[in-house]
């Protein structure tokens, strides 16, 4: 009897392992930080792009919704999402905070002059240090937060038409 139990449990264990492998095979396993939604961003201290002001959490609490967008003039996909950002700027409930990432000041200004400036506020992250605070690992990346600074959604890569509609729906509610 005891032996039978041992044998049976060994067989069940093997079935379990193979089953997990089988499910694992069909699971898409590309890493992203999208599941970190719901976190509260506590420490915000961003240098303003043009003056010596520091943008803090308090500034963002004033907005109903804020879209924090990390971009740089040297980043190709940032150009692709730029028209959508310009359109998002028209939303009343949404403020856009751009964070210029590891960029040269002149290049960034030129970029905005050529393509338009969608940002209500612009910060600067010359060494990229602050990006870590927001869980950024490659640009462009954007984070939608609410009044309480809780992350509603993360957008990895350029913002698409679908993302635009999603944001529009949320901020208009």
């Amino acid at each position: 009897m005891q032996k039978k139990i041992i044998k049976l449990s060994i067989i069940l264990l093997i079935i379990f392992i193979i089953g997990v492998f089988f499910i694992g095979l069909n699971k898409n396993s590309i890493y992203d930080t999208k599941n970190l939604v719901g976190q509260k961003i506590t420490k915000i201290e961003l240098e303003h792009f043009s003056d010596n002001r520091i943008i803090t959490a308090g500034d963002l609490r004033k907005n109903n919704f804020t879209l924090i967008n990390f971009w740089a003039s040297w980043c190709g996909p940032c150009r692709a999402e730029h028209p959508i950002l310009l359109k998002l700027n028209e939303e009343k409930n949404l403020e856009l905070l751009g964070v210029n990432f590891k960029d040269k000041k002149n290049n960034a200004l030129e970029f905005l002059k050529d393509l338009g400036d969608p940002y209500d506020d612009l910060a600067r992250d010359e060494l990229g240090k602050h990006s870590i605070n927001f869980g950024i690992y490659g640009i462009p990346e954007s984070i939608l937060i609410n009044k309480d600074l809780v992350i509603i959604k993360k957008f990895i890569g350029p913002i698409s038409k679908n993302d635009y509609n999603y944001i529009k729906n949320i901020v208009r509610q």
Partner: peptide
């Protein structure tokens, strides 16, 4: 990589 360079700075800080 870009990301690794950033993390290096942050960790040292």
């Amino acid at each position: 990589s870009e990301f690794a360079q950033t993390i290096k700075i942050v960790v040292k800080d």
